[in-house]
Simulated scan of single mutants.
Amino acid sequence: MEIGVVSDLHSNMVALDAVLRDLETENIENILCAGDLVGYYPFPNETVSRVRDLNALCVLGNHDFALVTETPRDFNRLAKRALDWNRRNLSEENLVYLEELPETRRLTLDGLDIFLAHGSPARPINEYIWEEDIDEHFLDVFFESPPDVVILGHTHRPYVKVVGDTLCMNPGSVGQPRDGDPRASFGVIDTESLEAEIRRVEYEIDWVAEETEEYLPRRLAERLYEGR
């Protein structure tokens, strides 16, 4: 079985559609989402509704949490303006969906023990875990019994790393990549071989940029072209 892994969608439905089309070409139906469905871009309802329709297994991200509670003061000006706009425009049904998302999930899928969070296992909402943080010490600190797979998001930078018998992945960001590559980033895990890869797909950035500039700060549109 192959599993699609996405994170940091950030209300960029156009990018999400491109990712899903790629997954559909290989009949990949099982999708895990490491949070941040909303924020930054102008398609919150379309994005959340699509994830719900997919029956994707998701966890709560920091932007999701901020939307259903109150935007933190430490959010930068652009992030706050976008999130406040997302909040005003999100349907009640989609708001309830975000409110009910768990902070972490530990599940069994095709025989694999999988841990899923947005930030870190200890601070799943907002702690950054970078590729260089992933080592045997990381697993020992956070897990009494390390899972087969650890999936994290939040950094918007993709990686795949194997530590001992554990596969660790950050799929990068669908909606706002920050590794210098503007293409939507996501991951695929093969449950039989326990191998994973990061994939990139192009999407219609111009369309998202135009819609963003109509409702939100222009700088958010410009970042899409820069991949940061």
Rank of each mutant, 00 (worst) to 15 (best):
E2D: 14
I3N: 04
V6L: 15
D8S: 07
L9Q: 01
L9G: 00
H10A: 02
S11N: 03
S11L: 03
S11D: 01
S11R: 03
N12H: 06
D17F: 00
V19P: 04
L20P: 04
R21S: 14
L23G: 03
L23I: 06
I28A: 09
E29S: 14
I31S: 03
L32K: 08
G35V: 07
L37R: 05
Y40V: 06
Y41R: 03
Y41N: 11
F43N: 13
F43G: 00
P44N: 07
P44D: 04
P44C: 05
N45E: 11
S49H: 00
V51K: 03
R52V: 15
L54G: 03
L54V: 05
N62I: 08
N62G: 11
F65D: 15
A66C: 10
D74H: 14
A79Y: 04
A79M: 07
K80C: 00
R81G: 06
R81I: 13
R81D: 10
A82S: 14
L83W: 03
W85T: 06
N86Y: 01
R87S: 13
R87N: 05
L90C: 02
S91C: 03
S91Y: 01
E92G: 11
E93Y: 09
N94W: 03
L95F: 14
L98K: 02
E99P: 00
E99N: 12
E99C: 12
E100K: 14
P102Y: 04
P102C: 05
P102R: 09
T108G: 12
G111E: 07
L112P: 01
L112W: 00
A117G: 12
A117P: 01
A117Y: 02
S120C: 08
P124Q: 10
I125H: 04
E127A: 13
E127Q: 15
Y128W: 11
Y128G: 00
E131A: 13
D133M: 10
D135T: 10
F143A: 05
F143Y: 07
P147F: 09
D148A: 08
H156L: 06
P158C: 10
P158N: 09
V160L: 11
V160F: 08
V162A: 13
V162T: 15
D165R: 15
D165N: 15
L167W: 10
N170T: 10
S173H: 07
V174F: 02
Q176H: 12
Q176V: 00
R178P: 09
R178H: 08
R178I: 04
D179K: 04
R183K: 14
A184G: 09
S185A: 15
G187L: 02
I189T: 05
I189N: 06
D190W: 11
T191K: 10
T191R: 07
E192P: 00
E192I: 12
S193E: 15
L194F: 05
E195H: 11
E195G: 11
E197F: 00
R199K: 15
V201H: 08
V201L: 10
Y203K: 07
E204N: 15
V208F: 01
E211P: 00
T212E: 02
E213C: 13
R218H: 13
E222I: 11
E222H: 12
R223M: 13
Y225A: 09
Y225M: 11
E226C: 02
E226D: 13
G227P: 06
